[in-house]
Simulated assay, not measured.
Amino acid sequence: MTSRIVLHDADIARALTRISHEILESNKGPDGLVLLGIPTRGVTLAERIGALIASFTGADVPVGSLDVTMYRDDLHRNPTRTPRPTEIPAGGIDGKAVVLVDDVLFSGRSIRAALDALQDIGRPAVVRLAILVDRGHRELPIRPDFVGKNLPSAREERVNVRLADVDGTEEVMIES
């Protein structure tokens, strides 16, 4: 197995800064914004984006997590997934601009599951998608609104995001 690093820590930081500015621009400021990370690394990325937005605007943006495990359509193939907690910020999501945050967008099935999970929680005014790495190969008609890096890859390759808070190192690798 060969692997190569395609994003280093500075690249990831730059991408998150750009995504944060794009979210603010799209929402016309921080008002009514809620960030929901998809566990595991999506939660860390959402927290970082929230901190960046706070540093730019002085406004705290609610950040939570949205576990999609029980909404996935592949549980029969991988029944040993461990659900993570869903934590919705105190103000809820009704009428808010919700930005789903995840590390890698591949088939689109996790995001479809996230949309189903959101329906059970409330009714946002709008739902947008922020992704650190878009690697293509969509199986569903899902497209991110904010992308850190488009990274074309072969279907059999694996894209691994490692974040210091979770993995002790900060990088994005492609393994083949």
Rank of each mutant, 00 (worst) to 15 (best):
A114P: 07
D102M: 05
H137N: 07
V126T: 11
K149R: 13
E157F: 10
A130F: 02
A130P: 00
V172N: 05
K96D: 02
A154N: 15
D145V: 11
G108C: 10
I88D: 04
R128Y: 01
T169V: 14
P89C: 04
D102P: 07
V99G: 07
P124A: 02
V166T: 10
R112H: 01
P89A: 03
I88T: 08
K149E: 14
M173C: 15
P89S: 01
R109S: 02
S110R: 04
D145E: 14
L105F: 04
L151R: 11
E170D: 15
E157N: 14
V98N: 06
K149D: 04
A117R: 14
S110C: 09
R143M: 08
I142R: 13
S110Y: 09
L105H: 02
A97G: 04
R143I: 12
D165R: 09
V98R: 08
F146I: 08
L118M: 02
N160Q: 15
A125Q: 12
E156R: 14
K149C: 13
V126P: 00
D134S: 02
D120A: 14
R155L: 14
Q119H: 05
V133T: 04
R162W: 12
V99K: 06
L151N: 12
A130L: 02
M173F: 11
N160M: 15
E171A: 06
S110D: 08
L151I: 12
E156I: 12
A113P: 05
R158E: 10
E157G: 07
S107N: 06
R162L: 14
R138A: 08
R143D: 05
A154R: 15
D120I: 11
L105N: 05
R155Q: 15
V172G: 13
L100Q: 09
V159L: 10
L105A: 02
M173G: 13
R155K: 14
V104Q: 03
I142S: 06
V99H: 07
V104Y: 08
G95T: 04
H137F: 07
E139A: 08
E170L: 07
E157K: 12
V127G: 01
V147M: 10
A90L: 12
G95A: 05
D103K: 06
D94Y: 01
D94W: 03
G92Y: 03
D134T: 05
D165P: 04
V166A: 06
L163M: 11
V99R: 07
E170P: 06
E156F: 12
G136Q: 08
S153W: 10
I142A: 07
V147G: 07
K96T: 07
A114V: 10
V126G: 03
V133M: 00
D145G: 09
E156S: 15
S107Y: 09
R138Q: 06
V98M: 12
P152F: 03
D94A: 11
G136Y: 11
L100G: 03
P141R: 15
L118H: 01
G136F: 01
V133Y: 02
N160F: 11
E139S: 03
E171K: 12
V98D: 06
L129M: 02
A117S: 11
F106C: 04
E156T: 14
P152I: 05
R155F: 15
P141Y: 13
P144C: 13
A154D: 14
K96W: 09
G91N: 09
F106L: 10
K96M: 14
S110K: 06
D103T: 07
A113I: 04
V147W: 05
I142Y: 09
V98C: 10
A90R: 15
V127L: 01
V127E: 00
V98F: 12
E87L: 09
V98Y: 05
